[in-house]
Amino acid sequence: MAANEYVVRAKGLTKEYRMGEEVITALNGVDIDIKRGEYISIMGPSGSGKSTLFNAIGGMDRPDTGSVFINDVDMAQLDARELAYLRCHTIGYIFQSYNLIQVMTALENVTLPTVFAGAPSDEGIERAIEMLNIVGLGHRLHNRPSQLSGGQQQRVAIARALVNNPAIILADEPTANLDLKTGEEIIQLLRKLNEDHGVTIISATHDLKMLNVSDRIVWIRDGRIAKIEERADIEINIGEMEGH
């Protein structure tokens, strides 16, 4: 299959929010190409536009101008059912606050995307169990989110994001609600899944622990890309960062 090297391409993204008189420019002309299998971190201070960019790439919100291509398909051209297909099969979402469905067990949460994909229920459950084993929660299948720690809930969310074998995982500050050690474990897990499954990981974060595992880092500031660093440059700059 002559798969395109780039799994995500964004061109000229802009987005403004109007709050009464005030106009907030959340994205101010962002271009970015993301390679298949890459682990890419979008870094920037709070309010710099990371989530807005993330939402545009994930088809959760439309940019004012510019376009996002996923596997060379222009998101703006998709109808509702095609967008739902993309969300179900091609993109996996991970959120800062986990967003598990509270009334469902870990297993039910992870099975849900396979239901939406139309998989037979025994096959869906089998895949969900397999994913929960991979994230190290094979022993907590029947626990509700309220019975799990933050780190465990995020693992369930990761299993849920991966269960339909997507090409892309979009993670918006996945470690922001976790303590240092748990955050580190989640980051290592994401990196491992990236290596083992070849899934492209796009993570919005201001967690500097992400620097070590990223192939590329996109620094964003005031809705613009300030700079893009390759992994090779990162090693050198880490000392500099920790000085901040």
């Binding site: 596997n71 398909v73 297909y85 993309l86 179900c88 091609t90 499954h197 070849g198």
Partner: peptide, 20 residues
């Protein structure tokens, strides 16, 4: 049912987007 895309990430979508 997208059984074919099981082990190849995003294979289904790469061939053009289907409808949910």
């Amino acid at each position: 049912v997208e059984a074919s895309s099981k082990r190849d990430p995003g294979a289904g979508a790469r061939a053009g987007v289907q409808k949910q």
